[in-house]
Design a protein around this nucleic acid. Structure first.
Lengths: 114, 114
DNA sequence: CTAACACTTAGGCTTTGCGCTAAGTGTTTG
DNA sequence: CAAACACTTAGCGCAAAGCCTAAGTGTTAG
């Protein structure tokens, strides 16, 4: 577990924006073109495509251009890093809380009547 | 599942910084004071305490000041939101990949000899 | 009661994030 | 081949992130 993980920084950063999360959600229902993806958003197109570029740069989606249409789909591998991190953290977390429980129990047993 | 979730934005944002992730890791081993937490980092103290404030503001840690020492500990509840989001996304993801598998199989069956 | 300690507040500086408009590129379609 | 289409590039503006130093504030030890 390194202090600095570029990959984790990037993926969390990518997920910190609601537009990008919504795009991932949409793509989980199937591939789509740039304009299809952009339609629900009120944003100007260049602003929107920056989000798509960011998602691709950080490995969360991939795209392919055919003719004048660019089609995007998910690249789920990268989300695994985040999931791993969370689950690992949660294990430590819960172990710690268990220890706290145990400690409080000890206190209680040692603590006769006051 | 709403398009805009302040809570998710905030938590992902909080986790996007390596210093803050390291603090969470350290705290998963037990509570600690501001200076104890700060020691491993080369950052100036005011810079570091801003990270702590952010973690607290977003509900990932909590603190209590007693005398001149402020002690921090984890507040694990909030991480659940992130975990939920990830796992939900993953379910959709995998269903989608399964569909793709099925589709490719269909193709293969329809595709006799070319 | 003074000095050290453990932060905390204030303010400044630079970089990055996220939005915009305007103009450009390459691909179809009539 | 001209016009419509689907992006793409360039460049600007503003706000927030993340770092710093300097100067507080309140607490405790000698």
């Amino acid at each position: 577990m390194t202090y600095y993980s570029r990959k984790l920084n990037d993926v969390f950063q990518a997920l910190a924006d609601p537009t990008r999360r919504a795009v991932l959600q949409r793509l989980s229902e199937g591939a789509a073109s740039t304009l299809e993806l952009a339609r629900p958003f009120e944003m100007a197109l260049p602003s929107f495509t920056r989000h798509l570029k960011m998602l691709e740069k950080f490995g969360l989606v991939k795209s392919k251009k055919s003719g004048r249409v660019r089609t995007y789909e998910l690249a789920p591998k990268r989300l695994q890093a985040v999931e791993d991190w969370i689950l690992e953290r949660r294990k430590l977390w819960e172990r710690r809380l268990d220890q706290l429980d145990a400690y409080l129990l000890t206190m209680k047993e040692d603590d006769h009547g006051q």
